[in-house]
Amino acid sequence: MRRFLVARLGWAIPVILAILIVNFLIIHIVPGNPIQALIGDFPAPPGYADQVRHEFGLDRPVLTQLGLYLLNLAKGQLGFSFANRQPVLGLIIERAQFTLLLMLPALAAAALLGIVMALAAAPRAGSLYDSGLTALSLVGFSLPIFWLGQLLVIVFAIKLRLLPAQGMFSLRTRLTGWAYILDVGWHLILPMFAVTIYYVAIVARVARASVLDALSQDFVLTAKAKGLSRRHVLWRHVLPNALIPVVTVIGYNFGYSLTGAILVETVFAWPGLGNLFITSIGNRDYPVLQGIFLLTAIAVVIANVATDLIYAALDPRVRAAGFRHA
């Protein structure tokens, strides 16, 4: 198992390096000028722009900049944000916490709900309940998440005045302790709901198909022939065999969830990574963008490795294959 893990992580290093270089070059190819964005329309003296450009090292050749960037990375320095005037690392970590606070519970709820719904629907494939679930998950899957988010804001925040429309804290208050936590939870409900609906739809579709497939496997007949109850067969035999494709989908989405929340965070003004990403593009804030790319690449790789490990835990055949090839 350790060799398997080392081999998988070893592969990740060249992948992440390649992603870094490509991202670095793409950002610099894109038109737009960070200095202009920084100075804005303020009439600056002609020498000032050059001075700022020199300060940030943007007057050097691109390849030199790339070399310096990689060198700094190796030293654990992600650079300095032009726009926010603070080190990138701290900025990203702060925002990533807020994104995780939104995405982790949403994904976990979606995974649980999606699997339970599929387990209820698949044994009755073709029934009204099953068709209804399939139709619903198709709708949930097709709804643009930003549209759903705005709809939720209109209904629950504006019309019903039940929940806050935006942000993560109530403004003009200084809450501490439990009151603070409750306040954040209060603001979390709508965006989390929007994210959960989308992922429930994805998980339920895949889980239904794979439960249906597992139900038709021969070993289910053996389990029934032993006299096991329907519930026991479903939870102990069908579900573990059906989980692998579901884990793939959840793992895959988890990797992207750090930045995948861009739309929801924008609609609900949630101060997470997605929000930072959008403003940093507007500001041509290269170091921040590169930092976010790096974090996303690492998150995707880690999510993939974790997915592989869960496969191995679920399926002894994968373990055997992993030992042989790794």
């Binding site: 496997q217 021969d218 070993f219 007949l221 053996t222 389990a223 022939a225 035999h237 573990p240 065999n241 679920l314 399926d315 002894p316 055949r317």
Partner: peptide
Amino acid sequence: FQDPLSFLNPI
């Protein structure tokens, strides 16, 4: 049953 591989739960 007939096919001893597919009729045993693989995991």
